[in-house]
Protein backbone atom coordinates (compact mmCIF):
# COMPACT_ATOMS: atom_id res chain seq x y z
CA UNK A 1 0.00 0.00 0.00
CA UNK A 2 1.32 3.42 -0.95
CA UNK A 3 1.00 6.73 0.87
CA UNK A 4 -1.66 8.11 -1.51
CA UNK A 5 -3.88 5.10 -1.05
CA UNK A 6 -3.53 5.24 2.74
CA UNK A 7 -4.14 9.00 2.78
CA UNK A 8 -7.18 8.45 0.54
CA UNK A 9 -8.63 5.80 2.83
CA UNK A 10 -7.97 7.94 5.90
CA UNK A 11 -9.65 10.94 4.26
CA UNK A 12 -12.63 8.74 3.42
CA UNK A 13 -12.73 7.53 7.01
CA UNK A 14 -12.46 11.12 8.26
CA UNK A 15 -15.44 12.14 6.08
CA UNK A 16 -17.55 9.39 7.65
CA UNK A 17 -16.41 10.44 11.14
CA UNK A 18 -17.31 14.08 10.46
CA UNK A 19 -20.79 13.01 9.38
CA UNK A 20 -21.21 10.71 12.38
CA UNK A 21 -20.02 13.54 14.64
CA UNK A 22 -22.70 15.82 13.23
CA UNK A 23 -25.36 13.16 13.68
CA UNK A 24 -24.30 11.88 17.11
CA UNK A 25 -23.23 15.02 18.91
CA UNK A 26 -25.20 17.76 17.24
CA UNK A 27 -28.11 15.36 16.60
CA UNK A 28 -28.65 16.98 13.24
CA UNK A 29 -28.56 15.86 9.64
CA UNK A 30 -29.49 19.25 8.20
CA UNK A 31 -28.06 19.71 4.72
CA UNK A 32 -27.26 16.00 4.37
CA UNK A 33 -28.85 14.12 1.48
CA UNK A 34 -30.46 10.86 2.55
CA UNK A 35 -30.52 9.86 -1.14
CA UNK A 36 -26.74 10.05 -1.35
CA UNK A 37 -26.37 8.13 1.92
CA UNK A 38 -28.69 5.38 0.69
CA UNK A 39 -26.74 5.16 -2.55
CA UNK A 40 -23.48 4.79 -0.59
CA UNK A 41 -25.00 1.98 1.49
CA UNK A 42 -25.95 0.25 -1.77
CA UNK A 43 -22.47 0.90 -3.18
CA UNK A 44 -20.77 -0.81 -0.23
CA UNK A 45 -23.28 -3.66 -0.02
CA UNK A 46 -22.72 -4.54 -3.70
CA UNK A 47 -18.96 -3.96 -3.75
CA UNK A 48 -18.05 -5.87 -0.61
CA UNK A 49 -19.79 -9.13 -1.56
CA UNK A 50 -16.34 -10.68 -1.36
CA UNK A 51 -15.91 -9.81 2.31
CA UNK A 52 -16.38 -13.39 3.50
CA UNK A 53 -15.00 -15.17 0.42
CA UNK A 54 -11.71 -13.39 -0.39
CA UNK A 55 -9.41 -12.43 2.43
CA UNK A 56 -7.00 -9.66 1.42
CA UNK A 57 -5.77 -8.27 4.72
CA UNK A 58 -7.01 -7.46 8.18
CA UNK A 59 -6.85 -3.78 7.21
CA UNK A 60 -9.01 -4.42 4.16
CA UNK A 61 -11.66 -6.43 6.04
CA UNK A 62 -11.78 -3.94 8.92
CA UNK A 63 -12.23 -0.97 6.60
CA UNK A 64 -14.94 -2.77 4.65
CA UNK A 65 -16.83 -3.49 7.87
CA UNK A 66 -16.47 0.13 8.96
CA UNK A 67 -17.80 1.50 5.66
CA UNK A 68 -20.67 -0.99 5.59
CA UNK A 69 -21.59 -0.42 9.22
CA UNK A 70 -21.30 3.36 9.10
CA UNK A 71 -23.22 3.79 5.84
CA UNK A 72 -26.16 1.68 7.00
CA UNK A 73 -26.23 3.26 10.44
CA UNK A 74 -26.18 6.78 8.93
CA UNK A 75 -29.20 5.85 6.79
CA UNK A 76 -30.90 4.40 9.84
CA UNK A 77 -30.24 7.56 11.89
CA UNK A 78 -31.60 9.91 9.24
CA UNK A 79 -34.70 7.80 8.63
CA UNK A 80 -35.51 6.53 12.11
CA UNK A 81 -33.79 8.38 14.92
CA UNK A 82 -36.34 10.43 16.82
CA UNK A 83 -34.34 13.66 17.03
CA UNK A 84 -31.98 13.37 14.05
CA UNK A 85 -34.75 12.59 11.56
CA UNK A 86 -36.54 15.84 12.47
CA UNK A 87 -33.73 17.87 10.92
CA UNK A 88 -34.02 16.04 7.60
CA UNK A 89 -35.73 18.19 4.99
CA UNK A 90 -37.33 15.76 2.60
CA UNK A 91 -38.80 18.46 0.40
CA UNK A 92 -35.31 19.69 -0.58
CA UNK A 93 -33.81 16.25 -1.17
CA UNK A 94 -35.76 15.36 -4.28
CA UNK A 95 -33.26 13.54 -6.48
CA UNK A 96 -34.60 10.22 -7.80
CA UNK A 97 -32.44 7.16 -7.00
CA UNK A 98 -33.64 5.35 -10.10
CA UNK A 99 -32.14 7.90 -12.47
CA UNK A 100 -28.76 6.85 -11.19
CA UNK A 101 -29.26 3.19 -10.23
CA UNK A 102 -30.80 1.93 -13.48
CA UNK A 103 -28.22 3.40 -15.91
CA UNK A 104 -25.39 2.16 -13.64
CA UNK A 105 -26.88 -1.32 -13.57
CA UNK A 106 -27.26 -1.41 -17.36
CA UNK A 107 -23.69 -0.16 -17.81
CA UNK A 108 -22.41 -2.78 -15.36
CA UNK A 109 -24.17 -5.51 -17.38
CA UNK A 110 -22.44 -4.25 -20.53
CA UNK A 111 -19.03 -3.18 -19.21
CA UNK A 112 -17.48 -5.42 -16.55
CA UNK A 113 -14.29 -7.38 -16.00
CA UNK A 114 -16.11 -10.71 -16.15
CA UNK A 115 -19.77 -11.57 -16.69
CA UNK A 116 -20.45 -13.11 -13.28
CA UNK A 117 -22.83 -11.93 -10.57
CA UNK A 118 -20.01 -10.76 -8.30
CA UNK A 119 -18.15 -8.92 -11.06
CA UNK A 120 -21.28 -7.23 -12.43
CA UNK A 121 -22.17 -6.11 -8.89
CA UNK A 122 -18.61 -4.85 -8.40
CA UNK A 123 -18.72 -2.81 -11.65
CA UNK A 124 -22.18 -1.52 -10.68
CA UNK A 125 -20.84 -0.34 -7.31
CA UNK A 126 -17.97 1.49 -9.03
CA UNK A 127 -20.30 3.29 -11.46
CA UNK A 128 -22.82 4.09 -8.74
CA UNK A 129 -20.17 5.48 -6.40
CA UNK A 130 -19.07 7.84 -9.18
CA UNK A 131 -22.48 9.53 -9.29
CA UNK A 132 -23.78 8.92 -5.76
CA UNK A 133 -22.68 12.41 -4.64
CA UNK A 134 -25.05 14.13 -7.13
CA UNK A 135 -28.12 14.30 -4.80
CA UNK A 136 -25.83 15.78 -2.12
CA UNK A 137 -24.41 18.38 -4.51
CA UNK A 138 -27.91 19.35 -5.65
CA UNK A 139 -28.98 19.70 -2.02
CA UNK A 140 -25.93 21.86 -1.23
CA UNK A 141 -26.88 24.19 -4.05
CA UNK A 142 -30.35 24.57 -2.59
CA UNK A 143 -29.10 25.13 0.95
CA UNK A 144 -28.56 28.82 1.63
CA UNK A 145 -26.58 28.20 4.80
CA UNK A 146 -24.15 25.31 4.48
CA UNK A 147 -22.80 24.55 7.96
CA UNK A 148 -19.09 23.88 8.44
CA UNK A 149 -19.41 20.14 9.10
CA UNK A 150 -21.43 19.56 5.93
CA UNK A 151 -18.92 21.54 3.89
CA UNK A 152 -16.02 19.61 5.43
CA UNK A 153 -17.81 16.30 4.87
CA UNK A 154 -18.16 16.92 1.11
CA UNK A 155 -14.64 18.34 0.90
CA UNK A 156 -13.15 15.23 2.55
CA UNK A 157 -15.11 12.95 0.19
CA UNK A 158 -13.74 14.85 -2.80
CA UNK A 159 -10.20 14.79 -1.40
CA UNK A 160 -10.47 11.01 -0.93
CA UNK A 161 -11.26 10.62 -4.63
CA UNK A 162 -8.42 12.91 -5.72
CA UNK A 163 -5.95 10.92 -3.58
CA UNK A 164 -7.15 7.69 -5.19
CA UNK A 165 -6.19 9.08 -8.59
CA UNK A 166 -2.66 9.75 -7.30
CA UNK A 167 -2.66 6.18 -5.93
CA UNK A 168 -3.53 4.79 -9.37
CA UNK A 169 -0.79 6.82 -11.06
CA UNK A 170 1.70 5.58 -8.46
CA UNK A 171 0.57 1.97 -8.83
CA UNK A 172 0.65 2.15 -12.62
CA UNK A 173 4.34 3.06 -12.53
CA UNK A 174 5.39 0.76 -9.70
CA UNK A 175 3.38 -2.43 -10.30
CA UNK A 176 3.29 -4.76 -13.24
CA UNK A 177 0.03 -5.25 -15.16
CA UNK A 178 -1.76 -2.65 -13.11
CA UNK A 179 -4.33 -1.37 -15.60
CA UNK A 180 -7.93 -0.88 -14.50
CA UNK A 181 -10.02 1.12 -16.92
CA UNK A 182 -13.32 0.66 -15.08
CA UNK A 183 -12.08 2.17 -11.81
CA UNK A 184 -9.93 4.81 -13.54
CA UNK A 185 -12.59 6.26 -15.82
CA UNK A 186 -15.30 6.14 -13.13
CA UNK A 187 -12.91 7.59 -10.57
CA UNK A 188 -11.99 10.43 -12.88
CA UNK A 189 -15.65 11.22 -13.54
CA UNK A 190 -16.34 11.05 -9.81
CA UNK A 191 -13.53 13.48 -9.00
CA UNK A 192 -14.56 15.92 -11.74
CA UNK A 193 -18.03 16.16 -10.20
CA UNK A 194 -16.37 17.80 -7.18
CA UNK A 195 -14.47 20.41 -9.27
CA UNK A 196 -17.17 23.06 -8.95
CA UNK A 197 -17.57 22.41 -5.22
CA UNK A 198 -13.80 22.58 -4.64
CA UNK A 199 -13.66 25.92 -6.42
CA UNK A 200 -16.27 27.51 -4.14
CA UNK A 201 -14.91 25.74 -1.06
CA UNK A 202 -11.45 27.24 -1.57
CA UNK A 203 -12.89 30.66 -2.47
CA UNK A 204 -14.88 30.75 0.78
CA UNK A 205 -11.83 29.59 2.72
CA UNK A 206 -9.53 32.16 1.10
CA UNK A 207 -11.95 35.03 1.69
CA UNK A 208 -12.92 33.72 5.11
CA UNK A 209 -16.58 33.72 4.09
CA UNK A 210 -19.38 31.25 4.60
CA UNK A 211 -19.58 28.58 1.93
CA UNK A 212 -22.43 29.12 -0.50
CA UNK A 213 -22.92 27.58 -3.92
CA UNK A 214 -24.54 29.67 -6.63
CA UNK A 215 -27.95 28.37 -7.68
Amino acid sequence: MNIFRLAGDMTHLASVLVLLLKIHTIKSCAGISLKTQELYALVFATRYLDIFTDFISLYNTTMKLIFLGSSFSIVWYIRNHKIVSRSYDKSQDTFRHYFLIIPCLLLALLVNEKFTFKEVMWAFSIYLEAVAILPQLVLLQRTRNIDNLTGQYVFLLGAYRALYILNWIYRYFTETHYVHWITWVSGLVQTLLYADFFYYYFESWKNNKKLQLPA
Binding site: I56, K64, T176, H177, Y178, V179
Partner: peptide, 10 residues
Protein backbone atom coordinates in the same frame (compact mmCIF):
# COMPACT_ATOMS: atom_id res chain seq x y z
CA UNK B 1 -0.89 -11.06 -3.35
CA UNK B 2 -1.51 -10.47 -7.03
CA UNK B 3 0.09 -7.09 -7.76
CA UNK B 4 -2.37 -6.31 -10.54
CA UNK B 5 -5.45 -6.76 -8.40
CA UNK B 6 -7.64 -3.66 -8.10
CA UNK B 7 -9.99 -5.47 -5.75
CA UNK B 8 -7.61 -4.78 -2.89
CA UNK B 9 -8.82 -1.19 -3.05
CA UNK B 10 -11.79 0.01 -1.07
Amino acid sequence: TDPSNAKDEL
